[in-house]
């Protein structure tokens, strides 16, 4: 995709800017749809109707909310550390935004097909922590500080099991390139890594439980990394008001908000890429397959996991900090290490 734009406009600054903006074209409509989904799915689960006034059945509600956030006064507390306070939302958003640079949408459609895609996503994923701790500290508010500390502890703890999952899949696939990982899984549905991947023959059935456990480990860690329920401890509204973004208002708050939704898509896409065959069709290469259908499958599968996150949010209560740490360090990490060793063994005998 990058090369395509460079060919079209020529290698200059305008082309680079255009390439940077391409993911936004996806993120903004996606965020609107996700917000609407959150409102309407929540309403449906809770036996209400949800927003009904803006547009047909309230479909324009997210637009109205974004406009409202844009119009709101931008408040900076007088005792806040202003440069850091103003910088923090941008850093958080950049972390989420940068990951879109390498997320493939189909066989032919990927903003930047670098061969370290998985590593890149992992690296920029930790970028958000800096922004969160910056915003929490610079707000000069005790609730923000508590939220920021919780968030840092949480995200760093849950990056370890997530990293082990990345490592396991990279080992079995033999690459960090997302496109190659997806290509490996093309073909029939049992080629997906959740069912043991394409290699192995009969012996791989012994290893399917390890892949399923890895899948669940990553699903849980991804919830923690995006600060979603049941791991929304950093912004647990009943305890620490709103956590690290207590003092933010207007557009700066909207950027935190947008970053959360963007992150939801990123982790869902990673789940789909690692375990569920990315843009490949579940019906094999012959039916509903190809670059255009690829976009459908990729986005569709990822949206399903966005739905799962929304679903969990409206169903589960919140964990406590020590329980969160217990789960991360004493359950998920040993499990993922054990699975990694098993899968490394499978990769070795292949």
């Amino acid at each position: 995709m990058g090369n395509f734009v460079f060919d079209l406009i020529g290698k200059n600054i305008v082309a680079a800017l255009v390439i940077c903006i391409i993911p936004l074209v996806f993120i903004l409509p996606y965020a609107l749809i996700a917000i609407l989904g959150e409102l309407k799915i929540g309403a449906w689960m809770q036996d209400r109707v949800g927003p009904m006034r803006t547009g047909w059945k309230g479909v324009l509600q997210p637009v109205a909310e974004v406009v409202k956030l844009l119009q709101k006064e931008d408040i900076t507390p007088t005792i806040a550390n202003k440069p850091l306070f103003n910088l923090a939302p941008f850093i958080v958003f950049i972390g989420a935004f940068a990951a879109f640079a390498v997320l493939p949408f189909s066989e032919k459609f990927i903003p930047s097909g670098i061969n370290l895609g998985l590593f890149f996503v992992f690296a920029v994923g930790s970028f958000a922590v800096i922004g969160i701790v910056m915003g929490g500290w610079a707000s000069n508010n005790k609730y923000s500080l508590l939220g920021a500390m919780r968030s840092v502890a949480q995200i760093i703890s849950y990056e370890l099991p997530a990293g082990m999952v990345f490592l396991s899949i990279a080992t079995i696939a033999g690459t960090l390139d997302m496109q190659t990982i997806i290509l490996n899984q093309s073909g029939p549905i049992w080629n997906w890594y959740i069912f043991g991947g394409p290699q192995g023959g009969a012996i791989k059935f012994l290893f399917i439980p390890f892949f399923v456990i890895l899948f669940i480990v990553y699903l849980i860690s991804s919830l923690a990394e995006t600060n979603r329920t049941p791991f929304d401890i950093p912004e647990g509204e009943s305890e620490i008001v709103a956590g690290y973004h207590t003092e933010y208002s207007g557009m700066k708050f909207a950027m935190f908000f947008m970053a959360e939704y963007a992150n939801m898509y990123v982790v869902s896409a990673i789940i789909v890429i690692l375990f569920l065959g990315g843009w490949s069709s579940p019906f094999g290469t012959s039916f509903m397959d190809g670059p255009i259908w690829g976009i459908f499958w990729m986005v569709g599968k990822a949206f399903f996991f966005v739905f799962v996150q929304i679903w969990l949010r409206w169903t589960l209560p919140r964990l406590r900090v020590d329980q969160l740490m217990y789960l991360g360090w004493k359950v998920l990490l040993p499990l993922s290490i054990a699975c990694f060793m098993a899968i490394a063994f499978l990769a070795m005998i292949n």
């Binding site: 929540g42 689960m45 809770q46 036996d47 209400r48 329920t229 049941p230 929304d232 647990g236 009943s238 409206w314 169903t315 589960l316 209560p317 919140r318």
Partner: peptide
């Protein structure tokens, strides 16, 4: 009490 723990849905069921 449920809402303090972060569970929002039972809250609305009971209020209904």
């Amino acid at each position: 009490f449920g809402m303090d723990a972060g569970a929002f849905t039972p809250f609305l069921y009971l209020f209904r």
